[in-house]
Design a protein around this nucleic acid. Structure first.
Lengths: 213, 213
DNA sequence: ATTGACTTGCTTGTTGTGAACAAGTATCAT
DNA sequence: ATGATACTTGTTCACAACAAGCAAGTCAAT
């Protein structure tokens, strides 16, 4: 592989920072591939190192334990999704933001299924462990929740009585997204239904954000 | 421990069937306890056998592999929940059935949190494995789906245009329940919000089952 | 610029744990 | 008593985790 750009030394020579960046990226790719093939439990640190083109011990040495490797991968995946999300909801509020977010979420399942699947595989894996990974998830979860709450509160067209319930509405929204993802993980072939679930949630959110009585 | 009831022989003598029933039950209890404490991945067959009062090897020998032990535990837990569910939805259809089911689901989280938590820990664990366990889940999932579809189709007060979408509505219902459970697993202390999510889903289902336009 | 001490990335050696299975012992059935 | 079934013990293999060593990169003094 050609070097991305010339370093400060002669050809082929890499800085320490470049070396770790390259090995990190390769191990990230290997992790995604192996988690897709064998699930998180069936993915060994040894395989990750070897598939990435290094020794059996590197993943262990770099990350300390399996959990931290997964936490690392999850954070990287989370950042990739966040770019997608921000590119589409930038500056939007209320129902507009919610709808664009859901459209993009569906689209990302279509465009980058490997990343989404790995992301949520690790996500669900963390339900059962008190660990680094589980902390990362909690962080992501909390940020998502706050984003949703902000979308609601920053929209001047939304009623005060609705805003008072922003936390509950955000909780319902997050829960529904998790449910949809769960469906998609188990029925990746049925994109039509996955799309319908996204649409259904849009509709539900419309009802929730529009004061009825 | 006193024998549950006299067997066909003298005191303290058990039939083979009784012996396995007892060891199965003890290993089931041990599995629930250990999964609660350490998660499925952190639960070893060795510990299960020992905690149940047997040798380190029994769980391995009886179930063959970890996955089959979990599959066994999951089926037992599923049956317990099914009793609860049937006791409350027997003979009901449509929205009535859905609402009673959700009430009971919430109540079961309150009354038997250990069972519900273990059940769904194993449930989410199975997302990442192609195995016996994953097959059991698929079965349970399919039955739930069919039940919901039947509730919709057997209710004469529900419109034909709605019944035509029975599958999609059932999918949305299942997904939402999964999402709610995911919330509860991560926020077991917040029963109020869990209750609200159940109520919210009832409301959504009311909308879905009542033709609007 | 070259050298040499130091730092950091990476590899190899080793230990402990657990899953899985085989072979053996104890308990029950007839 | 003979077979069948529940259970235990012995063994193997794989992997996580860590320690100790090797190699590549860094940087100051000359």
């Amino acid at each position: 592989m050609a070097t991305l750009s010339v370093s400060n030394h002669s050809e082929g020579r890499l800085t320490q920072a470049e070396r770790t960046e390259i090995s990190d990226q390769r191990m990230f790719d290997a992790t995604v591939q192996l988690v897709l093939e064998h699930g998180p439990a069936g993915t060994s640190l040894k395989e990750v190192g070897v598939l990435a083109g290094y020794s059996r011990g590197l993943a262990s040495h770099r990350f300390g334990c399996k959990d931290k490797l997964f936490s690392f991968a999850l954070r990287r995946l989370g950042e990739l999704w966040l770019e997608q999300l921000k590119s589409v909801t930038q500056g939007l509020v209320g129902l507009n933001a919610v709808e664009k977010a859901l459209d993009q979420h569906y689209q990302y399942c279509v465009d980058a299924p490997d990343y989404v699947r790995t992301f949520y595989s690790l996500w669900f894996e963390s339900v059962n462990t008190d660990s680094e990974l589980s902390d990362s998830i909690k962080g992501i979860h909390h940020r998502r929740h706050q984003d949703t709450v902000a979308w609601i509160n920053n929209d001047s067209s939304i009623d005060v009585t609705v805003k008072a319930q922003a936390d509950s509405i955000a909780a319902q929204f997050s829960a529904s997204v998790v449910g949809i993802v769960y469906y998609w993980l188990n029925n990746p072939e049925n994109l039509a239904e996955t799309r319908r679930l996204h649409q259904g949630l849009k509709h539900t959110m419309t009802c929730l954000l529009t004061p009825s009585s």
